[in-house]
Design a protein around this nucleic acid. Structure first.
Length: 257
DNA sequence: ATGGCTGGGTCTCCCAGA
């Protein structure tokens, strides 16, 4: 099965591009971030027409996540990241599909830093680690995937110098991400591309796509039960170059079974 | 040089993104 993630930057503005990607690459599971849609505006019928069932957790204007599955309804397990009852941002959705636990995340950007948005990012990452520890102890095949908004290492960015002050690559952000790997989660793309140089995001501005000024912030973290089944991983890079593209490209991992 | 695009909503400007 193929499990994919795509920060689409607006599900309505991106719908033709999204449907095209689903039909052309046919992922078994597709996690979406930044749907930028309220629950009642989510175009579920368009996905059902091409054979995908979906659950989604929307919000007005910003954020919003969804899980699509080919031919089966995702069984929702958790809506919203536990640990802060005052957190109203739609950034976390968890479901079971074909015996695999899928956690779709849109981790806070954190800019500008320092400041309250960066504090929120770090607090969110601490809550994420707690949730992932819960998944770990259940010993189920699990994958936590989505837009982590963290550049893990210097090899994951076109210019560490240009991005030095960005929240995406502050030591605190990197340490929090490294803790997840230290806990035993497998970064699929990094494991199969250890020398780096793989990008998943290119800014709309300053000709970043044309100059290949990108970085890697969309990640796939596998539990040991799934890491043992990993066959291949990739970035559907060419979708970034099409008309009305998202600023992210889809990422995916292929596992046996 | 702190700009440069893009989507959504309060809608010809502002906010947020990364």
């Amino acid at each position: 099965m193929r499990i994919a993630s795509f920060n689409i930057n607006g599900v309505k503005a991106r719908l033709p591009r999204l449907l095209e990607w689903l039909e052309e690459t046919r992922p078994t599971v597709a996690c979406l971030q930044e749907i930028k849609s309220q629950d009642e505006g989510f175009p579920v019928e368009e996905f059902e027409k091409i054979g995908y069932k979906a659950i989604w957790y929307g919000q007005k204007s910003f954020n919003g996540v969804a899980i699509l599955a080919d031919g089966v309804e995702p069984v929702e397990v958790q809506r919203g990241l536990p640990g802060d009852p005052d957190d109203e941002q739609s950034r976390y959705l968890e479901a079971d599909v074909n015996g695999v636990r899928i956690a779709c995340i849109y981790l806070p950007n954190g800019n500008p830093q320092p400041g309250p948005k960066f504090d929120y990012k770090l607090a969110w990452m601490a809550r994420l680690r707690a949730r992932m520890t819960e998944l770990w102890t259940q010993e189920i095949p699990a994958i936590v995937l989505g837009d982590f908004n963290v550049i893990p290492e210097d090899k994951d960015v076109w210019s560490p110098k240009a991005m030095a002050s960005d929240a995406l690559m502050q030591p605190e952000s990197r340490d929090a991400y490294a803790q997840l790997l230290g806990d035993g989660w497998t970064d699929a793309i990094d494991t199969l591309n250890p020398r780096g140089g793989v990008w998943t995001y290119w800014d709309y501005q300053a000709g970043a796509w044309q100059r290949d000024h990108g970085f890697r912030i969309d990640h796939l973290l596998l539990s040991p039960e799934l890491a043992d089944r990993m066959k291949a991983t990739g970035v559907d890079k060419d979708y970034r170059g099409r008309e009305k593209a998202s600023d992210h490209a889809p990422v995916w991992v292929e596992i046996t079974g």
